[in-house]
């Protein structure tokens, strides 16, 4: 077993490194209370706006909170939220896409017309409207983004299903008495899942950015939650005087998003080298 693993790592150096980094990020999220030396919401008003230095490696923000601790805790918010979001989109999109592709007819028409409507809205705008109506919070931001983002996966799943829908072996499954659920699970799903999982992994980074964007605009995480997008918003007005308020959350977003993007790309290279 070990030899197989070692050989895999040697053959796929890029993927392995990126996977290790991704796991590292998840570990940081898990171990945040241990790694951060201060409670991210602990504020010492008197020591506000301190520049990075001993005691506060990333400086302090306007309520005197330690920026490093907030950045570390930010992994607990941003990463799981993005993962949940992607998982929800994956599941909803896959189910609707498979159903639309397999059953065709009015089911297909209804689902695809709804998908068309969603696509014609600029995603951020619709997400803002949804978050505005339902109130601003991370949960509602996730819901809003699910509503606008499932369509890509549904279309992909549908087209992958259509590729095999009219193959003889699918008809053979019907004639030999297979139930519909069985066909969807055993025939359609395995044809759809690998591509969609790759797409989902690549999308983790993008979704993280969207969530941060919504929080930046005030429609996602609310203070005093240490979410990176929100931290960017809070630091925005001080950019000339106290640039560290924007620098560190910004770097965090850039690094984490990049790692997940590259991870998705290299996963695709492994599973589907022809494309």
């Amino acid at each position: 077993m070990m030899e197989k693993a070692i050989r895999f790592i040697k053959e796929n150096k890029g993927f392995s490194i990126l996977l290790a980094l991704a796991v590292l990020i998840l570990l940081i999220a898990l171990l945040a209370p241990v790694l951060a030396w201060q409670d991210p919401t602990y504020s010492d008003m008197g020591s506000a706006f301190q520049a990075p230095g001993p005691g506060h490696l990333f400086g302090t923000d306007r309520l005197g909170r330690d920026v490093l601790s907030r950045v570390i805790y930010g992994t607990r918010i941003s990463v799981p939220a993005a993962l949940i979001l992607v998982l929800a989109i994956l599941v909803i999109g896959t189910v609707l896409g498979i159903v639309a592709g397999y059953f065709g007819g009015w089911v297909d028409t209804v689902i695809m017309r709804i998908a068309d409507m969603m696509i014609s809205f600029p995603g951020m705008v619709l997400a803002i409207a949804v978050a505005g109506i339902m109130g601003a919070s991370i949960q509602n931001a996730i819901i809003a983004l699910v509503v606008v983002s499932w369509t890509k996966y549904a279309r992909l799943a549908r087209s992958l299903v259509l590729k095999i829908r009219h193959e003889d072996y699918v008809y053979a499954a019907v004639t030999t008495g297979s139930k519909v659920i069985y066909i969807l699970r055993q025939y359609m799903l395995p044809n759809v899942l690998p591509t969609l999982v790759i797409t989902a992994t690549t999308d983790i980074g993008a979704m993280m950015l969207e969530l941060a964007g919504l929080s930046f605009l005030g429609f996602g995480a609310q203070p005093p939650i240490p979410e990176w997008g929100l931290m960017l918003n809070e630091g925005r007005q001080y950019i000339t005087a106290y640039p560290w308020l924007i620098l560190f959350p910004g770097l965090a977003i850039a690094i984490v998003v990049s790692i997940f993007n590259l991870l998705g790309d290299s996963l695709r290279d492994i599973l589907d080298p022809r494309s």
């Binding site: 003889d168 072996y169 008809y171 053979a172 004639t175 030999t176």
Partner: peptide
């Protein structure tokens, strides 16, 4: 009812998953 009537498909290259 499908238990009573079965089919052998034309193209053996495509008739099996």
């Amino acid at each position: 009812e499908r238990q009573n009537i079965q089919m052998v498909f034309q193209d053996p290259a495509r008739a099996f998953n």
